[in-house]
Nucleic acid binder design. Structure first.
Length: 575
DNA sequence: GCCGTTTTCGGCCCGACTGTTTTCAGTCG
């Protein structure tokens, strides 16, 4: 219900902007935003405390509350229906076209009757747009290009695909003699799981030289814009990169500003105003005097709060917590002491070889332990092991550990597995075999489309198995390809807490499962988590940083993540 | 339309760039 209402309020904001109404649109946007992140359903809130309680929701006043009630009762909002009727355009489609906002969409409808993407494309192709007042030849071409891009891509890219490429560009920029500092910014720096476009920030006293280099880099297929301090390009891989160049004295304020999120910044600027300051990318000002700007830390300090880590800057309560000086002490990559989800392809005969490779990587990472967790027999196609093979592996690992001890290597290898949770919640391998392992991961790998109740029961049954310590990639999603499984997460959390079952944060950039929001829920519920890479080759052990980033976005601290602990302490978390 | 230990009325975050304009509106982040 919250999401539906939020969408309606957002659309109403657009319609009001279209008509040139002042300030109301922001009020609707604010309401939409607050509904979106509200943890309790508005229907429940209304049932509990009526209109009065609805008005307690931030951004919801008398008028909004009345509209919410109207929607709850009739599934319609008259005012919204009226606005839609007046301008019957497909907002979703048209707002997705880069360069079109409410005003232009309004004009296109009023003059040419354009309602959707298809009609827009036809009009642009037939050169009907260039002659409209406020439009021109360039706008028409940009519309066509934007439509083309929309068709080709859904507009967002995986963090795991973008980050390595941006790192290369950043290294190139850092090599320029005109460049003093390079930093990522935007959602990339906040480590969101998907990125719309990448933001790079450069400190230089010769911005033009940097901009010129940037737009001429190999791989640039389109220059969206280019000015003295900023430029925006498209790379041949299909994603956009924005570059901003600023002077050194504004580094902190610029980094803060360009890191966002927009919502976080809006609240921050309001706090600045309350204190009699003005905050912009050029600094924190009192009148015309700059009182902070060189570092982010001093800006947050002057605003009377803790420094806020980039991953937290989503206006999800982090500012209030920072003011109260109670910011979480987020985990970091260096806190990770081991990776317990590694596949060795044991039944191919290459197990020993792979385990040695994992050990090599683990040493580089400074780990204290690793855990081998091959699939079990249901997933024969994915090198699933049966009881006998599992016991062979157990013996091998025991022997290997002794060898490591002799050469005085502190690293310890744990022997586990990733058992398959069958449709009825039972395991695909005997409990007798599982009991002999150091730990057991269990995961759902089949019948992912089960209905909500059954799936909830299925996972709960697995968690109640005294041999199961960890549930791997709980939601089973593959980003941009496979939907999440449906189950009652609150119930799962309750049973996880009760049984001491650990939930995995799968670090693969294609999974990131649990995601940031669910990590935070698990933390709140007091459920322990583990960050694993699910590596199938040694290079993938480096993906740990993606898991850590999502854990940080979920406010996770060392105490929430079991593989931040020494082996001795880790063992206590296993059943 | 919302909000308030400066206010129940009068404010609402801020700036860059583009493309259209002859000084600025619209869009974006």
């Amino acid at each position: 219900m919250n999401q539906k209402l939020s969408q309606i309020f957002r659309n109403m904001a657009f319609f009001l902007k279209m008509e040139g109404v002042a300030f109301k649109p922001q009020a609707y946007e604010k309401a939409a935003e607050n509904l979106e992140t509200l943890s309790e359903d508005v229907g429940e809130i209304y049932k509990k405390g009526g209109v009065d309680l609805l008005e307690k929701i931030p951004g919801i006043g008398k008028s909004m509350a009345t509209r919410i009630v109207e929607y709850l009762k009739t599934e319609k909002i008259k005012e919204y229906e009226k606005l839609k009727k007046k301008t019957p355009v497909n907002l979703d489609e048209l707002l997705g076209v880069e360069g079109l906002g409410p005003k232009k969409i309004g004009i296109l409808y009023k003059t040419l009757g354009i309602k959707n993407l298809k009609e827009l494309e036809n009009a642009a192709k037939n050169h009907k747009i260039a002659s409209l007042s406020g439009f021109g030849e360039k706008t028409e071409q940009n519309i066509l290009q934007a439509i083309e891009f929309r068709k080709k891509s859904k507009g967002r890219f995986l963090l795991g695909e973008i980050l390595p490429k941006i790192s290369v560009i950043m290294a190139k920029l850092a090599d320029l003699k005109e460049v003093e500092t390079v930093s990522e910014a935007g959602s990339l720096r906040r480590r969101k799981e998907t990125i719309g476009d990448a933001d790079i920030l450069v400190i230089s006293s010769k911005p033009q030289a940097v901009i010129d280099f940037f737009v001429k880099m190999p791989g640039v297929v389109k220059i969206w814009g280019k000015g003295p301090t900023k430029a925006s390009i498209r790379l041949k891989d299909g994603f956009d990169v924005d570059l901003r160049v600023l002077a050194k004295e504004s580094f902190g304020s610029a980094l803060q500003y360009f890191t966002g999120s927009k919502e976080h910044n809006i609240v921050l600027r309001k706090i600045a105003i309350e204190k009699g300051y003005k905050l912009s990318e050029y600094g924190l000002f009192k009148g015309s005097k700059k009182i902070a700007g060189e570092s982010e830390k001093e800006i947050y300090k002057k605003l009377g709060m803790d420094y806020i880590e980039p991953e937290l800057r989503e206006n999800q309560g982090e500012i209030n917590v920072a003011i109260k000086r109670k910011s979480p002490k987020l985990i970091g990559l260096k806190d990770i002491k081991g990776d317990l989800h590694l596949h060795s392809h044991w039944n191919d005969g290459i197990g020993p070889q792979m385990i040695e490779q994992y050990i090599g990587e683990a040493k580089k990472c400074g780990y204290e332990y690793i855990g081998i967790s091959d699939h079990t027999k249901f997933l024969a196609i994915e090198h699933g092991l049966d009881e006998k093979q599992l016991m062979e592996q157990r013996k091998y690992i025991d022997k290997f550990n002794k060898k490591l001890k002799i050469v005085n290597c502190k690293l310890k290898i744990l022997c586990g597995c990733e058992a398959n949770i069958m449709a009825d919640g039972s395991m695909d391998i005997s409990d007798k075999a599982l009991a002999k392992l150091d730990y057991v991961i269990a995961g759902v790998h089949s019948q992912l489309k089960m209905n909500k109740n059954e799936m909830t029961k299925r996972i709960i049954k697995a968690m109640r198995n005294p041999n199961i310590d960890i549930i791997s990639h709980p939601f089973g999603r593959i980003l941009q390809r496979r939907e999440e499984c449906e189950f009652d997460f609150d119930k799962i959390l309750k049973v996880a807490k009760e049984t001491g079952t650990i939930l995995e944060i799968n670090a693969s950039p294609y999974r990131l499962d649990l995601n940031d929001v669910n990590v935070r829920k698990a933390k709140k519920a007091g459920v322990k988590m583990i960050i694993n890479t699910d590596a199938h080759q040694k290079e993938q052990m480096n993906l740990m940083e993606y898991g850590v980033s999502q854990a940080r976005r979920g406010w996770a601290e060392k105490s929430d993540i079991v593989n931040c602990h020494s082996l001795e302490k880790l063992n206590k978390f296993f059943k």
